[in-house]
Amino acid sequence: MLYAQILNAVMLGCTYSLVAIGFSLFFGVLDTVVFCAGDVAIFSSFSVVFLVQLIGFYNIFFGLFNPVAALLLTVIVAAIFTAILMVLLYQLVIKPFENKSSLMPLLSTIAAGIALRELIGIFFPEGRNPRSFPELLSNERILQELPGISWRNAIIIVATILIVAILYWFINKTKIGLSIQAVSQNREAATMVGINRNLVIYVTFIVGGLILGFGGFLIGSYYAVIRFDLGAGFGLKGFSAAVVGGLGNVYGAIVGSMLIAFAEVFVTAYIPGGTAYASIAAFVLVLAFILFKPEGVLGNKSVEKV
């Protein structure tokens, strides 16, 4: 029983993580919260549904590709769609307001999130109804002796770890990745060593968009049923996780996601009538951090004292 709960919490934590990482990356380079990240992830889930239907429609596709290749192609194309959407969102709803006040991008991205949600609801066929997410990852157990470890669950966990590992390599070992960190840590100093902040922002939105894109696929696979307005909840959880972990800190976002997921799962499992309290538990955790440790678990924007 405990084993099952832990597994469940880790899975939930994985789905929150990728959204929370998106929040952290964007906050790092912009110093403002991009509130539509959850909706962007759900846009990706719907892109996957759309692409799978498209592929099903052109049946030849499966004749051309083996199922694994078709799956990878679908996910990658959905992630690319999502990255393009993220860059468009930056260009249209964040950049025009950037130098006005930090509140404006906050409001405009909340509005963009609502718009995105409603656009899915309106333009996707029967978009306002819950939709079953195509079962691209098999629900069969990998080993009969290991309950709970289906291909789906294993792939969600491994894919999350893999994405985080690639991100780690990217932001620590490549020059453009280091300059993302430089802009996050000290915007003016970044300008002074000649970093092109605009370029860094675009790259961050592409990378963040790809991660939200993969996140949308994992979310869909985990929940099996998606809805046009799921993004609001994911946005709130992802944002909370990023705050708990220390806004702007990518690894903190993962820790924050796991903390929130564990809180939710364990409150649900061990407190009578706990389902009702699960979300409250998550927000109590956030409030506790804001009150007692506002820099978050791994927040490091405060290292900067002499």
Binding site: L178, Q181, N186, N300
Partner: peptide
């Protein structure tokens, strides 16, 4: 405060030679 406090000395240098 012209440095990148969370990056290593090495990475700070590397960014100097951008």
């Amino acid at each position: 405060e012209g440095l990148f406090p969370g990056l290593s000395v090495d990475d700070n240098l590397r960014l100097g030679a951008y």
